[in-house]
Design a protein around this nucleic acid. Structure first.
Lengths: 154, 154
DNA sequence: CCCGAACACCGAATTTGATTCGGTGCGACT
DNA sequence: AGTCGCACCGAATCAAATTCGGTGTTCGGG
């Protein structure tokens, strides 16, 4: 993981579909070298994959919310089952499993407030393991475009 | 946005780098048609871009946390400045701007607990606009692999 | 200091994919 | 029935990915 690898990772985070030749040109190395590096990054698991980023609005998801959820009992099987089933609901973007007073943060999307409400009544109110949840609307979600490696400890 | 477009979006979310030919073959259409569709999806802003997904551990980020942050005064300029500057810190993955008692959720990463602590002392304790923050460790972050379009209202 | 192996890199040759574009069939509207 | 528009297709062309043999450099013996 030298400076060149970092640069490759940075570039591919910004644009995961730029051609290997273009990337090589930016970095001032030969395409074959660049390809070898990139493949190694993937084989080593540093680059885990490539994803298309999709507009929520285009997917008919104008409302986003975070659902702070408490589940009991906090047994492994209950926690795992909750994570798995909730993650696969179409309205759910991601699930954070947390320490602290809320066990999970569930990032959800819906067409509008009414659908959000209906979703929560259908999927959260009913579940026996959920003992409480609070919902907060997300106004905006910004993402850091470039996650570089943090410097190693000194 | 017909069924075919949805399938393209779904496939490219799963693997944003598969070749146009492979994608066309999966969908049973000609590569030229598939290319036209895909480009249209991008021109319409439905596909916003392609990103490499990178392992946190490989980037020397083993600890993740969510920082629930309250900022005052809640004026536009203060909010915007906070979002912008915090999003660009290398430890910050993303920032949710929220309704409710916490104004922001800041998803952060660090090498270890000590670095997390140092980061918070350096970047959060000092800021005049931050009046309070709580930090919770994230055990796990699961993401829904396939976000399809939600059905339109009836 | 010299030799040889290991390694990273390079560039030409080949294979594969992207892109273009003229043609075709189908559905809608007249 | 005619014609327009549209989506799709497939062959031809262009560009990129991939392979692979060769080269320079580093590093550890000898």
């Amino acid at each position: 993981m030298d400076e060149l690898d970092s640069a490759i990772v940075r570039e591919l985070q910004a644009d995961g579909r730029q051609s290997n030749r273009a990337l090589a040109a930016k970095l001032g190395i030969a395409p074959s070298t660049c390809l070898e590096r990139t493949r190694l990054l993937q084989r080593r698991g540093i680059i885990q994959g490539y994803r298309a980023e999709v507009s929520f609005k285009a997917l008919n998801r104008s409302v986003q919310a975070m659902v702070f959820t408490q589940v009991r009992p906090l047994r492994r099987d209950v926690v795992t089952a909750f994570e798995q089933s909730v993650t696969q609901l179409p309205e759910v973007v991601s699930v954070y499993t947390m320490a602290g007073s809320d066990d999970f943060l569930v990032h959800v999307t819906a067409q509008d407030i009414d659908h959000l409400h209906a979703f929560l009544l259908d999927q959260f109110t009913n579940r026996r393991e959920i003992i409480a949840f609070r919902t907060s609307i997300i106004y905006q979600h910004l993402t850091n475009p470039v996650l570089g490696p943090l410097p190693p400890a000194e």
